[in-house]
Design a protein around this nucleic acid. Sequence first.
DNA 1: TGCCAGGAAGTCC
DNA 2: GGACTTCATGGC
Length: 290
Amino acid sequence: MRIIADKTCIVIEEIEHFDLKQTLECGQCFRYECISDNEYLVIAKNRTLHIKQEDNILFFYNSTMEEVQSIWCPYFDLNRDYGTIKKWLNERDNLIGEAIEQKSGVRILNQEFFEMLITFIISQNKQIPHIMQIVERISERFGEYIGEWNGKKYYSFPTPEVLSKATEQDFLDMKAGFRAKYLVDACKKVVSQELCENELRQMNYGEALEKIQIVKGIGEKVGNCILLFGLGRREAFPIDVWMIRILERLYFDEPVKKDEMQAFAKEHFGEYGGYAQQYLFYYARDNRVK
DNA sequence: TGCCAGGAAGTCC
DNA sequence: GGACTTCATGGC
């Protein structure tokens, strides 16, 4: 991997184990727009990013060398060796290989805690396009203006302080449905420091998973998503409907309970659970397994 | 129309 | 402590 400052953009060459489309569209990210093939506008980190990939070259159009190094490389998890991760998983069994092969360009984004907290509370019993709509409404109404692209205005994801001003009715108006009261509770507990990002980061995985479930509407699955995508806990293994389908197909001969799957994943994938989960999840969803 | 969606809480026994 | 129901909303 090599970073170069070109005349009009920042370029990263010789990039490996990375596919922009797969990484954005695998179901972990809810704020991006496809401009053309392998070219996207990403809304994250209180700014927009116009980014494009051609083969193993990445172009950052509206950014700086400093920003690419300090913000976007960590965001896209580009400093991590995915070759080692895939090798470890492939040596663990011969069942996950097809998913890794097909989705080999997926990286786990390092997104922001509060945004993931709110987003995955919304995600329960909802399809991804609709989650994206609600997150966009929240940002438009409570976030700050961060720029315009193709005549459309974009807004940052709001801070806990600002979003805590939203009422249950506000969230209902933004079509959050029965999750509205959960969102109010989440904001309240973050602002009051009852739920503190830094404390969660210092806890071990089990403690953090238990702690985050003090928020109403967060159970084991949503909690694991927040830990994986918003707190960098790569051992987190969220099990949703797609994971139940693919795990049953690959690893079990008969229907098993979620608890048993969770225990299996912990024992089998260990600290690499999050990567295994994302390859399998995207593979299962994209191929509409069972 | 009925069924399902990156589920969790409430209620029943 | 497990199984069943309910909770908004939208896409198919």
